[in-house]
Amino acid sequence: MITLEEVNKELKEKRVLQNISLTLQKGKVYLLKGHNGSGKTMLLRLLCDLLQPTSGTVKKPSYTYGVMIENPSFIEHETARSNLTFLASIQKKIGKQEIDSHLKKVNLLEHADTKVKNFSLGMKQRLAFCQAIMEDPDVLLLDEPFNALDDDNFAEMVRLIQEMKKDKIIVIAAHGFNISEIPLFDEIITMNDGKIKSMEEYNSSLSS
């Protein structure tokens, strides 16, 4: 469980997050909604320690994180597999076999030895998703993960997230799509101007 209490974050004397209090639990998928600049990405960064709060407290055990924040970035002149192998070498939790099995899950195994510079945006998006999930992290933070995906890969990613949700905290930041198209979320957090405007439970099975 991750608990944020009265968390504020200032960058360049501008308050980008204001009085954020929320609790995130394992086994749930949270949708973080809001316009551009509403603070969604900042909140994701804060959840995985890329940012430290200016004030307030963040309580959590020592979780492992899989993140997909902003545009997918990779070493363009290297292959998909070598990018993942490099990232996997940091924690040394998984080897070549697991990397390949995850590449297969996101339909990229046949492009494993293709240089990333030759990937389409949708393929880069799937590769970014692959690096986020490959080490089976406790917390999955996905910023606009469905961008540039075709219908089949979109459905596959939703299926994979659903499959993984049992023992993870999953937060997905997204905007500009019809929520009833994605039968995935348990709670919806709406943000505006760096504040949480509302947080409500969502029964996706009813809407679908």
């Binding site: 320690d49 890329l50 994180y65 993140v67 070493i75 990232l87």
Partner: peptide, 15 residues
């Protein structure tokens, strides 16, 4: 620079 592009992925894995 190309390594630095992976900064989010590296930092969340190892600090």
């Amino acid at each position: 620079s190309s390594r630095f592009r992976l900064r989010n992925y590296i930092t969340t894995r190892g600090g």
